[in-house]
Amino acid sequence: MTGDGDSAVARPTRHVVVMGVSGSGKTTVASGIATATGLTFAEADDFHPAANVALMRAGVPLDDAHRWPWLRDLAAWMADRAAEGTSTVLACSALKRAYRDVLRQGPPRLDFVLLHGPAEVIRERMTRRTGHYMPASLLDSQLATLELPEPDEHVLTLDVSLPPEELVAAAVRALNLAGRKGPLLSDSV
Rank of each mutant, 00 (worst) to 15 (best):
G38K: 11
L90D: 02
D111A: 15
P61W: 03
P49L: 11
A42W: 10
V53N: 05
P49D: 15
D45K: 04
R100G: 01
A94P: 05
F41E: 05
A50N: 02
G117E: 13
L74F: 02
Q105K: 14
V60C: 00
T86H: 09
A82M: 10
G106R: 15
T28V: 03
E84K: 10
A50S: 07
G32N: 03
S24I: 01
L115Q: 04
G32W: 09
K96V: 06
A82E: 15
L74M: 15
P118C: 05
S22A: 15
K26M: 12
E120W: 04
W77Y: 15
A75H: 04
A75Q: 04
V113K: 02
D64R: 06
R128S: 13
Q105V: 00
A83N: 10
H48Q: 11
L39W: 15
L114R: 12
R125N: 10
L74N: 10
V113F: 05
G106W: 15
M126N: 09
R104G: 01
D80F: 14
V60K: 14
C92H: 03
P61H: 07
R109V: 05
F41T: 00
G117S: 08
K96S: 02
A75D: 02
G117V: 06
A91H: 05
Y99A: 03
A91I: 05
A58P: 01
T27W: 05
L71I: 08
I33C: 01
A44D: 07
F112R: 12
E120Q: 14
R81V: 00
N52E: 08
S24T: 00
E43L: 01
R104L: 11
K26G: 03
A34Y: 09
L110Y: 06
A34I: 01
A91P: 03
L74E: 12
R72T: 06
D111H: 14
E84G: 00
L90Q: 05
M78W: 14
G25A: 05
T28Y: 09
L71K: 04
G59A: 09
T35N: 07
D111M: 03
V29R: 11
G23N: 08
F47V: 14
E120H: 12
R109Y: 06
L114D: 00
P118Y: 02
A91L: 03
I33L: 13
A58N: 02
R109L: 11
T37F: 14
L39Y: 13
D80Q: 14
L62Y: 12
S24D: 05
W70C: 11
P49K: 12
W68I: 11
G38A: 00
V29W: 08
V21N: 03
A75P: 01
R109K: 13
M56C: 06
G59K: 10
P61Q: 05
R128T: 12
S93W: 11
T127M: 13
